[in-house]
Amino acid sequence: MMVLAAEAAADPPRAIGIAVFVVLVALGVLLIGSVFSRTLRSRVLAPAGYAVVGIVCGYLVARGIVEVVTIDVADPASYRDDWGGPSLLGVLAVHCGPGVAVLIAAGLLIRRRRANRVPVAD
């Protein structure tokens, strides 16, 4: 019985890989279709691109937050084998750096959009 439970636990990562593959193939088909259709390009690919970028950026920010929460700063053994280790500064730079860069870029984009906004005349 225990063997069956262990095998069932190994299946979800394979299913996730297959789902990612299917999504990538679908995006490839949309990209090929966008060469021939301007409507498809503006109505489907732009929102899909924003969605993919949003998901990746959300992952990077969440990864940085989880790394800060899960490591024990006082215990070097908790982060010694992580990427960027054995130093705490290296681990935080590798895991939190991309999330911080995303937040800085988002802040700059929001600031630029607000500066370029045309005031509405009453």
Score class of each variant (00 low, 15 high):
57 C>S: 11
95 H>Q: 12
12 P>K: 15
119 P>F: 15
30 L>R: 06
122 D>C: 01
91 V>S: 04
26 A>E: 07
59 Y>V: 13
9 A>V: 06
51 A>D: 01
71 I>L: 12
26 A>M: 10
72 D>W: 04
69 V>R: 11
109 L>M: 12
8 A>F: 03
111 R>K: 12
40 L>Y: 03
57 C>V: 02
10 A>P: 00
35 V>Y: 10
104 I>S: 01
50 Y>W: 12
87 S>M: 05
43 R>F: 11
85 G>S: 04
24 L>S: 08
109 L>I: 08
90 G>R: 02
80 R>A: 12
121 A>I: 10
57 C>L: 07
40 L>S: 04
34 S>M: 13
104 I>P: 00
66 V>S: 07
49 G>F: 03
36 F>I: 10
98 P>T: 14
45 L>G: 01
31 L>Y: 04
87 S>K: 06
31 L>A: 10
50 Y>T: 06
82 D>P: 00
32 I>F: 06
68 V>G: 01
36 F>S: 13
22 V>W: 08
105 A>I: 06
42 S>A: 12
115 A>Q: 11
119 P>D: 07
88 L>Q: 05
98 P>N: 14
48 A>F: 03
65 I>L: 15
57 C>T: 09
35 V>T: 11
98 P>G: 11
3 V>D: 09
100 V>W: 05
63 R>G: 00
8 A>K: 13
90 G>F: 03
10 A>W: 05
90 G>W: 05
23 V>P: 00
29 V>C: 10
117 R>I: 03
12 P>Q: 15
91 V>I: 07
76 P>E: 11
65 I>R: 06
36 F>T: 09
47 P>I: 14
120 V>D: 03
54 G>V: 10
102 V>I: 14
36 F>W: 13
111 R>D: 06
52 V>K: 04
101 A>V: 06
111 R>Q: 10
64 G>C: 04
85 G>A: 05
111 R>V: 04
104 I>G: 01
117 R>P: 00
58 G>D: 02
72 D>L: 06
116 N>G: 09
3 V>N: 03
81 D>G: 00
4 L>V: 11
5 A>L: 13
49 G>C: 07
119 P>R: 15
57 C>W: 08
46 A>I: 15
41 R>C: 05
70 T>D: 12
81 D>K: 10
122 D>R: 04
18 I>W: 13
67 E>Y: 09
55 I>C: 05
45 L>I: 14
57 C>P: 00
30 L>N: 08
66 V>N: 04
89 L>I: 11
7 E>W: 12
75 D>S: 04
45 L>E: 06
5 A>S: 08
14 R>I: 14
48 A>M: 13
106 A>G: 01
103 L>D: 03
54 G>C: 06
12 P>D: 15
93 A>Y: 02
119 P>I: 08
20 V>S: 05
38 R>F: 02
17 G>E: 12
17 G>H: 11
93 A>E: 01
122 D>W: 05
114 R>K: 14
3 V>R: 10
43 R>Q: 14
111 R>S: 10
36 F>H: 09
9 A>H: 05
117 R>L: 13
67 E>S: 06
78 S>N: 08
59 Y>F: 14
99 G>Y: 05
96 C>Y: 02
54 G>S: 13
74 A>M: 07
37 S>M: 08
28 G>A: 12
89 L>V: 10
